[in-house]
């Protein structure tokens, strides 16, 4: 049994380990290890295309995660304690957004936005000289749609376990609703909000499927990696992959710790 578990863990981590190992190779081949060097990391960090893609990915991930966290938290606050048809409709929307495959979201957003842009651009150009196109904006919108739904689920889950007596006590003691929110509710749901933000950031930063369709002329890091793999894997890609995985691992561990703390508070 123990050996079986070890074998499964090896299966899960061998591919990740191989990429990390090969990224330190001194040779030119991506699929073998010749000596040890950090040269591919240097190459990757000095490659202007990589840096530009990284910058796009970071910008999109940050803005979409901030918006998703704000909008998702607001919706979760409104939904908690709510009943009736509106609540049922929202629950359904959240479920659809989480369950529907990324590829369907990707193509649907692509054709809907392109059709809308085709419709409004002639007017817009005449009036303002500007026109709409797919790019960072559509990436932020499509990523945020999914991650906002994640935030709703996480924050609502936390809100539903809060003790209503605390809020009553606070208003009995003369606190305004806003004061109660800031001093009682917010501190208790903050870990869940932060965890939601980190998951949203990680999702957007790692996503390839949706980005592939709605990125327009922008190149995110996963899109860069995908098109590079198509041309043949290089040790530079291994170095980029290792850095990306380390970055998302760090964020994930922080999110896990935050969620754990929020659970510990719940028990206390």
């Amino acid at each position: 049994m123990r050996f079986y578990a070890l074998a499964v863990y090896a299966f899960l981590y061998l591919p990740i380990g191989i990429i990390a190992l090969f990224s330190f190779s001194a040779g030119r081949s991506a699929s073998s290890m010749e000596g040890f060097s950090l040269q591919w990391y240097g190459r990757a960090l000095n490659n202007p295309f990589v840096m530009e893609a990284l910058w796009t990915s970071l910008r999109v991930a940050f803005v979409s995660a901030v918006l998703a966290t704000l909008v998702g938290t607001a919706a979760a606050l409104a939904l908690t304690g709510m009943r009736g048809r509106l609540r049922a409709t929202f629950d359904l929307l959240v479920q659809i957004a989480v369950m529907i495959p990324g590829i369907v979201i990707g193509i649907a957003t692509l054709i809907a936005l392109v059709s809308v842009f085709d419709l409004v651009n002639p007017w817009l150009e005449q009036i303002t000289g500007w026109s709409l196109a797919l790019g960072a904006g559509s990436l932020i919108g499509a990523h945020g749609l999914f991650t906002m739904s994640l935030v709703v689920l996480l924050v609502r889950g936390r809100l539903e376990t809060l003790d209503p007596a605390l809020i009553e006590a606070s208003s009995d003691l003369g606190a305004t609703p806003l004061g109660t929110f800031r001093q009682v509710t917010l501190p208790q749901i903050l870990p869940a909000i932060l965890a939601g933000f980190l998951l949203a950031f990680t999702f957007s930063f790692d996503d390839f499927v949706i980005a592939f369709f709605v990125a327009g002329a922008e190149t995110t890091l996963p899109i860069y990696v995908f098109s590079s793999i198509r041309r043949g894997v290089t040790p530079e890609i291994n170095a980029i992959g290792t850095m990306v995985m380390v970055a998302s691992l760090t964020l994930l561990i922080i999110a896990q710790l935050l969620l754990r703390r929020s659970q510990a508070q719940r028990r206390a």
Partner: peptide, 16 residues
Amino acid sequence: PFWTSILIRSYAWIFL
């Protein structure tokens, strides 16, 4: 592993 890039984890199998 599920939360790290599936793109990078998949292409590792090209080597394996």
